[in-house]
Computed example of a mutant assay.
Amino acid sequence: MDGRLIYLMGPSGSGKDSLIEAAREPLRAGNCEVVRRVITRSAESVGEDAIEVSREEFDRRRAKGDFALSWQANGLSYGIPARIDQWLADGRDVLINGSRAHLAEAQQRYPTLLPVLLTVKDEALRERLLRRGRESPAEIEARLHRNALFTADDSIGDTQIRRLDNSGDLAGTVANLLKLLNLSAKPDQT
């Protein structure tokens, strides 16, 4: 029996990295591997358990076929190691930190993937982005505008995107993720 690919996406600042880290052990206990992305820049991966490589190394790995999925966004290259195919074939679920812009391509390769969109209310996102201190107030407002566009669609083709709100308590979001994936019977805590 094949495992399922869980394709987590969300705007910058939505808390994907925090959610992945907080859910890592319960996911593993539920037969779900959490994948470390390969990224070409360290600043973007602050807080993310990623493998940082140079652009040349990334291109070499991509040419060699080391990635099941790869894409570029915001001047960076991202890759998902090809070993996910073996995990899926072995019946293990696999959670990846994906890109909304790359979802259609990922869905072509993995037609049964489960798209999960991590959402966050504008007030919470603004606060997180200000706390992070990487962007100017104008850049934050532009990101908030993109967040509204980012969360507009409920489906891609025939596949419904599952939404997971991360505006509140992280423990509640973890419980809701596990519930969504049928890995836990914990009640909705958001």
Score class of each variant (00 low, 15 high):
L183M: 11
A23Y: 09
D93K: 05
L177W: 03
T112H: 11
Y110M: 02
R132E: 04
T119S: 03
Q86M: 15
S70L: 02
R134N: 11
D85R: 14
L27Q: 08
A171D: 15
L95Q: 03
S99T: 00
R62F: 12
Q107E: 02
A68H: 06
R92Y: 12
D49I: 04
S184P: 07
D2H: 10
S77D: 07
I84Q: 10
D154M: 03
R132S: 09
I80Y: 05
R126K: 15
R100L: 00
G79T: 04
I84G: 09
W87M: 14
I84V: 13
T112A: 15
L178E: 03
E48V: 05
D90E: 14
R4W: 02
E48C: 05
D93E: 08
S167Q: 13
W87N: 14
D158Y: 01
D169S: 13
S70Q: 03
R128N: 07
E33V: 15
D93I: 06
R109G: 02
T112P: 04
L164A: 04
A175Q: 08
A138E: 15
F67C: 09
S77I: 00
L177I: 06
E56R: 13
G91Y: 08
A148F: 06
V35T: 12
R143V: 03
L8N: 02
D165N: 13
G157C: 01
I80M: 05
G10N: 03
P26H: 09
V174W: 05
E33P: 10
R163M: 04
S54K: 09
V94H: 02
G79A: 06
G10W: 00
R60F: 14
T151I: 13
L125H: 04
S54G: 11
S18M: 11
E52G: 05
G47M: 04
S167E: 12
P115Q: 06
I140P: 09
A68W: 06
A148D: 09
A148M: 05
S77Q: 08
A142V: 11
D59K: 15
A171W: 10
